[in-house]
Structures are given as structure tokens and as C-alpha cells.
């Protein structure tokens, strides 16, 4: 569990509006995410008519999100592409950077997205954008989102309540899904790594039976975790775009 601990690196006494805001290891990995993402995007800024490999890769990502927004929302979705793209890239890079074996050089990797405080805030921001856009665009008519077409009149109050609850649960499911997926993956790897080391320490026999199979399993799960890192970023971006679609197109 040590890998999830947040501890200050500097500025222990920094305060903003009375709140204690030291520069923590979590903040450091957010900064790293920003720098790596910026460098990655810089490679796509050559803006050549015939793209090189790097530019192709960057355009692949931007095209992926732009296409997703176009298919899910339509032309009006273009306005939200910067936000969803930032969200997707931030989560993806934070997930992947948290997987780096930086402990080899003495730095403990930290997965920003394994913290409920981060994923929760991102989910609340997405949800808030959905609410703001929905109410700004449709005023109180936005509540008709909770009454699907063709609902019989006596059912409306019940359906309304159910739909409202499912709507209100969205930010929690959005934030918790990412947090749980990242935490569980890292804990699983940590448990298996513990098996490898403790098994090897207990003698050659246990090393053969326990350590080696656990190590093989770890290799596979590490690959799976890389996949999960991408999938969770995609799911977060996809759900955000679907929720935005509800708010913009309202059935």
C-alpha cells in the first residue's frame, strides 16, 4: 500500500487560501504527465502536409478522439473535443507513467489516477460540464431527459425517479471505475511480486513452485495492465462523450 501514499516533496508549509498545499509526489507525477504529454504533442506540431511517423502517431490520437466525438455527438461535439482529448490523454499518460519501473533508478512510481481525489474531481468536472451544457441549452426542458419517449402517464413519476437516480450515479461510477481499476491492478502486481520475493527467500524448492509461476503470471498481468490503462482512459472519455451527447441532443 506504500505505493499509494502521498507524501510532500517540498513546500510543506505552502498554503493557498488557508489550505495546506505542499508539492507532493502525486503533484510531481502530474507534472511529469504534463511534460511528457507536452513533448509528445510537440512532435505533432511540425504540421507537415505529408506527416512523419511521430506526427502520424499524434494525429492518430487526435483523430481518434475527434472521430469519437463526431460519431457520438455530431458536429456540435467539436466544441468539446479539447476537453475530452485533454481528459483522455491525461488519464492515459498518468496510467502508463504509473506503470513505469522507475524503482530501478530509485524513484517510486506513483499512479495519479489510482487516487479517488483525482478521479473523483475529473468525474465531477465532466458531470458539471454535462449539467451546465444541458441546462444552458435546454433550460428546464433538460428534465425531459429523465422521461423516455412513450412512457405511459401513470409510470412517469416512477420512471422519473429511477432515471434521476441513474443520472446522479454517473459521476460516482465514472470516478470509481478508474480509481478501482488502477488500484486493483497495482495491488495485484504488488501481491504477486511479494510472492516472487518471499518464495525465493524461503528456499530453492519454494522458488521453483511459487516464485517462477508468479513471475510468469506477473509478466502477463503487466501486459494486461497496460491494456487496462488504455481501456480505462478510453472508457472515461467515451462515457464523457456519451453524457455530453445526452445534454446536447436530449434524445
Amino acid at each position: 500500500m506504500h505505493q499509494f501514499e502521498v507524501h510532500p516533496l517540498m513546500g510543506q508549509n505552502w498554503e493557498v487560501a488557508g489550505y495546506h498545499v505542499p508539492f507532493t509526489n502525486s503533484a510531481a507525477w502530474m507534472l511529469l504527465t504534463l511534460v511528457v504529454l507536452w513533448l509528445f504533442m510537440l512532435g505533432g506540431m511540425k504540421r507537415e502536409l505529408v506527416p512523419g511517423r511521430w506526427q502520424m502517431a499524434v494525429e492518430g490520437f487526435t483523430g481518434f478522439i475527434t472521430d469519437m466525438m463526431d460519431t457520438n455527438i455530431g458536429p456540435q461535439g467539436r466544441k468539446f473535443v479539447p476537453y475530452v482529448f485533454s481528459l483522455f490523454m491525461f488519464i492515459l499518460f498518468a496510467n502508463l507513467l504509473g506503470m513505469l519501473p522507475t524503482a530501478l533508478v530509485g524513484v517510486h512510481a506513483f499512479t495519479v489516477t489510482s487516487h479517488l481525489t483525482i478521479t473523483g474531481v475529473l468525474a465531477i468536472v465532466s458531470f458539471a460540464i454535462v449539467l451546465i451544457v444541458g441546462f444552458a441549452k435546454h433550460k428546464l426542458h433538460f428534465f425531459s431527459l429523465f422521461v423516455p419517449h412513450g412512457t405511459p402517464l401513470p409510470m412517469i413519476p416512477l420512471i422519473f425517479v429511477i432515471e434521476l437516480v441513474s443520472f446522479m450515479v454517473r459521476p460516482f461510477s465514472l470516478g470509481l471505475r478508474l480509481f478501482v481499476a488502477m488500484t486493483a491492478g497495482h495491488i495485484l502486481l504488488k501481491v504477486l511480486a511479494g510472492f516472487v520475493i518471499n518464495g525465493a527467500a524461503a528456499g530453492a524448492g519454494t522458488a521453483l513452485i511459487v516464485s517462477i509461476p508468479s513471475f510468469v503470471l506477473m509478466v502477463g498481468i503487466t501486459l494486461l495492465e497496460i491494456l487496462v490503462a488504455a481501456i480505462q482512459a478510453y472508457v472515461f472519455a467515451l462515457l464523457t462523450s456519451l453524457y455530453l451527447n445526452d445534454a446536447i441532443n436530449l434524445h
Binding site: V16, Y19, P82, V121
Partner: peptide, 24 residues
Amino acid sequence: YASQLFWLAIFFGLILIVVGYGML
């Protein structure tokens, strides 16, 4: 929570402005 929120606001905000609205 205050530190996480503060730094997330700064760094995600920078990503949104520099990458999302600047480069994209």
C-alpha cells in the same frame, strides 16, 4: 485533498489550455 485538488487544477488546467486548446 486540498493539495491534490490544487495541483490537479494547475496541471490539468495547463494540459487543457496548452495541449487541448493550444496544440490540438
